[in-house]
């Protein structure tokens, strides 16, 4: 019995050891992947056409979903906040509350989460499929640079496009908030807009922009890393798509916490 128990413990320990080694190996590989992006993305020749095409793809892929979600977030947040403010007779603060919540946190976060699902998974699956069907190898053996053409363009596209989408989400959410406020409190558009921008500072806009850039970079690099290093045939493609979504979402939340903490020092 003792021998069996100790054998199980040894097995568990070696499994844990292996997991730990795998974790640090993966961390090293991700680090190398990111460094390679910075080494290759900003040296000529630039794949400008492909970057523009990818920006368009990222925008188009998420546009409808982001429009609907942004609007709903605006309406729901306004609706849910009203009872709490009503208790203190402070419904007039609703536009300010909505704008602070949306611009500081919700717009970048909601955009990033939707983009992780739509764009991240698509990048992971696309590159994963290219890897397992040897299309990436075909690019490599023809003297071209697949990393530059496939990875750098996609990461730059998400990094550039997510902030634009995030701003758009914010505006749509505020529009949703306005429709709800105007219906219930009869507030005019000009009064609403004035109250929306009153509490917002330069730091809010900059922080929101930085957040969106970081989220965009994360979604792109995670999707590309998962897809580019995909193995094991079609099973690997599925894993790459899934891994791109889960990892990107997790990292987005972690980054949100860190950036909120850092920006709070500047307020």
């Amino acid at each position: 019995m003792d021998t069996a128990e100790s054998a199980t413990t040894v097995k568990k320990n070696s499994k844990f050891k292996q997991s730990l080694i795998n974790f640090f190996t993966d961390l090293y590989k991700i680090n190398q992947f990111i460094l390679r992006f910075f080494r290759e993305a900003f040296v000529p020749p630039f794949e400008l056409k492909e970057i523009v095409r990818q920006c368009f793809e990222v925008g188009v892929r998420s546009f409808t979903l982001i429009s609907v979600t942004g609007f709903i977030v605006g309406v729901i947040f306004t609706k849910q906040s009203r009872p709490s403010l009503s208790e203190f007779g402070a419904q007039s603060w609703l536009p300010s509350l909505v704008s602070i919540a949306i611009m500081r946190a919700l717009a970048p976060l909601v955009t990033a989460l939707i983009a992780s699902g739509k764009v991240g998974s698509s990048i992971g699956a696309e590159l994963g499929s290219m890897r397992v069907t040897e299309q990436i190898d075909a690019m490599e053996v023809s003297g071209t640079k697949p990393f530059k053409f496939l990875v750098c363009t996609r990461v730059l596209a998400t990094t550039l496009t997510i902030p634009i989408l995030s701003t758009y989400t914010g505006l749509i959410a505020i529009l949703g908030g306005y429709l709800n406020v105007s219906q219930n409190e009869g507030t005019s558009w000009s009064a609403f807009i004035q109250q929306v921008f009153e509490p917002l500072t330069f730091v809010d806009f900059v922080a929101s922009l930085i957040k969106s850039i970081v989220f965009g970079f994360t979604i792109g690099i995670v999707g590309c890393y998962q897809g580019y290093n995909s193995t094991k045939g079609t099973e690997g493609v599925g894993k790459a798509a899934n891994g791109a979504v889960v990892t990107a979402m997790f990292l987005v939340f972690i980054e949100e916490i860190i950036i909120v903490q850092i920006t709070s020092w500047f307020r």
């Binding site: 499929s129 290219m130 069907t133 040897e134 299309q135 190898d137 075909a138 690019m139 053996v141 023809s142």
Partner: peptide, 12 residues
Amino acid sequence: IGFSFQNSALYD
């Protein structure tokens, strides 16, 4: 060097 892949590896 030209490399012709088993599954052609054309860019989809």
